[in-house]
Simulated assay, not measured.
Amino acid sequence: MRFVRGSLFTGQQVTVATLQGTVAGFAAVDGDWLTQLYLDPAWTGRGIGTRLLRHVTTGMTHVKLFCFGANAGARRLYERHGFVAEAFGNGSANEEGLPPDILYARPGHFGPACPAG
């Protein structure tokens, strides 16, 4: 836990979603970047990702993030909430080496008018 607090998320705003005493997911923001959005697979499909995304990006005028092409669920979530794929990488820029890595961006404000997911 010390690594996560002291290294991984240094200087980032982190939000943790807990349900029934368990960490269901978390999101981290650094400037205009959504650096992490993770959900425990046992908690997907319940709107938690949407609530985390809304919470951490409310008031941001522009948001960017990277997503693995193979993560179809995350891609659907981001695209449903106005993110647009701007660039596709070959995987050489990410730690896992998984292609494609997709740069998504969403201009504007993410407010209550966005659809629930």
Rank of each mutant, 00 (worst) to 15 (best):
F26D: 06
R51K: 14
L39V: 04
D30N: 13
G31L: 11
W33R: 12
D40A: 13
D30Y: 12
G45E: 06
R51P: 03
P41G: 05
G31A: 12
D32Q: 13
L39I: 00
T35R: 15
I48C: 08
V23D: 08
T50N: 12
T22F: 08
T22L: 12
L52Q: 01
D40N: 15
V29A: 13
T35W: 05
D32I: 07
Y38P: 01
H55G: 10
P41L: 01
G49M: 03
L39T: 02
L37A: 04
D32V: 08
R54S: 12
G45Y: 05
T50H: 14
T35K: 13
T50E: 08
T35E: 13
G45M: 04
R54D: 10
T50C: 13
W33A: 08
V23R: 08
W43E: 05
I48E: 08
G45F: 02
I48T: 06
I48Y: 03
L52S: 01
A24M: 10
T57V: 10
W43G: 01
A28S: 14
T35L: 03
V23I: 15
I48W: 03
R46V: 01
R54W: 10
A42G: 10
A42I: 04
V56K: 00
Q20N: 15
D30M: 08
Y38L: 11
L53R: 03
Y38A: 09
T44W: 04
L19K: 12
L39E: 00
A24C: 11
R51D: 13
H55E: 14
F26V: 06
D40F: 04
V56Y: 04
R46Y: 04
G49A: 03
G25A: 06
T50L: 00
L39F: 06
T50Y: 12
P41D: 07
G31N: 00
D30G: 13
T35Q: 12
R54T: 08
W33K: 04
F26Q: 05
G49S: 04
V56P: 00
G25D: 04
L34T: 06
Q20K: 11
